[in-house]
């Protein structure tokens, strides 16, 4: 469902051109669980941003669900992000002045869904992530793990096909990190395509498919039986 063909992404830094992505060709099918690993600056976040339509490829072709999305306008890209893609960030990116429930509601609001339809959907997602009793808390009243679970609830409330997680456990202690990853993997079990960027090899090993990147290129692309069977 995700098909990248000869994707390049160049950045201009001073008078130097940095090839963050250098001729990346990649195909990910529905329901996959993919980890993208590599040292910092290897282009793994850029790859995620291009897949998530937050960033545009300099050259190459990107098909999402068989549709060429390379040339979409900004507004069309925004719509696609809203409906098809969920993001989970290392820094959670919750809006501090809004409650957990209101944060989860944001994508529904941007989609123009009426309030009375939004509430049951938000409640359901929060319940699935065991956050019901936290729904009226502001982010600063939540633990790191809870915050990231709120962010996951927000990423999945529109029922997207793809969930993109950029270092989702980077700001968490080991226990919360494991919980968050378990949550993501449980979602993957239920059919969502999961892409996790991490520089933690142990976490990356848990994915069914592992991609290693160095200097903007994919250097290894292996499908291994997961070392740890997800619950």
């Amino acid at each position: 469902m995700i098909e990248l063909k000869h994707i390049h992404r160049d950045f201009q830094v001073g008078d130097q051109t940095v090839h963050a992505l250098n001729d990346v060709t990649l195909s990910i099918s529905r329901g996959d669980y993919v980890s993208i690993m590599g040292p910092s600056g290897s282009g793994k976040s850029t790859l995620l941003n291009v897949i998530g339509l937050l960033d545009r490829a300099t050259a190459g072709q990107y098909l999402l669900n068989g549709k060429d999305v390379t040339g979409l306008s900004e507004t069309e890209q925004a719509q696609t992000r809203n409906r098809e893609i969920g993001f989970v960030f290392q820094a959670f990116h919750l809006v501090p002045r809004l409650t957990a429930a209101e944060n989860v509601e944001l994508p529904l609001m941007l989609a123009g869904i009426p309030a009375e339809e939004r509430r049951p959907r938000v409640a359901r997602v929060l319940q699935e992530l065991h956050l019901t009793n936290r729904s009226h808390h502001k982010p600063d009243q939540l633990s790191g793990g809870q915050r990231q679970r709120v962010a996951i609830a927000r990423a999945t409330v529109m029922e997207p096909n793809v969930l993109l997680a950029d270092e989702p456990t980077g700001n968490l202690d080991q226990k919360s990190g494991r919980e968050v990853l378990d949550t993501l993997e449980a979602l993957n079990q239920r059919g969502i395509t999961l892409l996790v960027v991490t520089h933690d090899a142990a976490l990356g090993q848990r994915a069914k498919r592992q991609i290693k990147m160095v200097d903007g290129r994919i250097v290894s692309n292996s499908t291994s039986s997961p070392s740890h069977a997800p619950a």
Binding site: L54, E74, T75, A78, R81, H93, L106, P107, L110, A111
Partner: peptide, 16 residues
């Protein structure tokens, strides 16, 4: 800025 970036990631168009 971060909040606006987030809204964009969640699907807010420039017009929105």
């Amino acid at each position: 800025t971060a909040e606006i970036g987030l809204l964009k990631a969640l699907g807010a168009s420039p017009r929105q």
